[in-house]
């Protein structure tokens, strides 16, 4: 099996779908000749032509409108927002237009658009590039939000996103793009949107997380193991809709849980996960469900990221607090 970085797996998924369906179009700022600022679309314009893979003018709102319009004329747009910090520019197209298309038309129209975008801290970008804004998407009815943490998941989820007939926001954590390789089958496969993955089994505490924090949580789980605490790590993979069955089954088994996110405590989805656990499994709990999250400041300047973003030590500390409650 091929070893790929996450960005290679993402490119591979787009190549697969461009081959698979002639209505798939890939576009955004610099995605054509240049292959994207992270090379996510490397080689795709050459392989599939400028009709299928093309550059757009530098205007995010326009890209969103273009995608919606192309979707109405039979295409399956895969649009890129160069950095997710720019999403405010295209917020109307995504959460007010695409997300409502099916509802407003009583099911006549839909927006089969995939919105790919890099996000996430730890790579020292300028301001408003890395912000963890996934919570805004979670709070918007009508869209799905996918965040892969491994190359394998990245490919299968992106293929599913492109084939989905509703808008899917697909967020790519920049720190994971090239930090490690993983096994990725060369043939096509899909991973169902809305299904979490238990990345590590355990019996004492559930660590529920997504994105780059999956890796920090796995590291924390190893540390906890040394102290005799068996932690289960759940990678949500899709944050909207949540895989409530996997979350609840794990919590019922362990009786304890923490939710870990890179986003600020007031952002992200930590609070929603806690609320769902309270709604559905409160009698299984041996301790309150706590959260590991960044402080409620705006996303920090590059040189402050290291102290701001939660790490495995924060997770170990919080897990022990819940374990020893």
């Amino acid at each position: 099996m091929a070893q790929m970085t996450m960005i290679q797996a993402i490119t591979d998924a787009m190549r697969n779908e461009l081959k698979n369906n002639e209505n798939v179009l890939v576009f955004g700022e610099d995605v054509g000749q240049n292959g994207g600022v992270f090379r996510a679309t490397e080689g795709l314009q050459k392989e599939f032509g400028e009709d299928r893979v093309f550059d757009t003018p530098l205007a995010e709102s326009g890209i969103g409108g273009l995608a919606l319009g192309l979707g109405l004329t039979g295409f399956r747009p895969v649009m890129e927002i160069q950095f997710f910090g720019f999403v405010f520019e295209v917020m109307d197209s995504v959460v007010a237009q695409m997300a409502r298309m099916r509802y407003r038309s009583g099911g006549v129209y839909n927006s089969p658009v995939t919105i790919r975008s890099p996000f996430g801290g730890g790579v020292k970008t300028p301001e408003l590039h890395a912000d963890n804004l996934e919570g805004l998407m979670y709070q918007s009815p009508g869209i799905k939000v996918v965040i892969p943490a491994t190359p394998y998941d990245a490919k299968g989820l992106l293929i599913s996103a492109i084939r989905d007939n509703d808008p899917v926001v697909y967020l790519e954590h920049m720190k994971l793009y090239r930090s490690f390789r993983g096994e990725v089958p060369e043939e096509e496969y899909t991973i169902e949107i809305g299904k979490a993955d238990v990345k590590r089994e355990g019996k004492d505490i559930s660590i529920i997380t997504y994105g780059a924090m999956v890796h920090a949580s796995l590291k924390a789980a190893e540390e906890l193991e040394k102290d005799g605490i068996s932690a289960e790590v759940i990678d949500l993979r899709t944050i909207s809709p949540l895989d409530i069955d996997t979350i609840i089954a794990s919590v019922e088994k362990t009786g304890r849980a923490i939710v870990v996110q890179e986003a600020q405590k007031q952002a992200g989805i930590g609070a929603f996960v806690v609320a769902e656990i309270n709604d559905r499994a409160i009698l299984s709990l041996e301790a309150p469900v706590l959260r590991v999250a960044a402080p409620d400041t705006v996303f920090p300047f590059a040189s402050a990221e290291d102290v701001w973003i939660p790490d495995h030590r924060d997770i170990v500390e919080k897990a022990k607090k819940v374990y020893n409650f």
């Binding site: 009709d51 709102s61 326009g62 969103g64 409108g65 273009l66 995608a67 919606l68 319009g69 192309l70 979707g71 109405l72 004329t73 039979g74 295409f75 109307d92 197209s93 007010a96 237009q97």
Partner: peptide, 18 residues
């Protein structure tokens, strides 16, 4: 939303051309 249809019309017009 005032103006939202204008960017969408660019997309529909581009799709018709394609």
């Amino acid at each position: 939303i005032i103006g939202a249809q204008i960017i969408q019309a660019a997309g529909v017009g581009f799709g018709l051309k394609k």
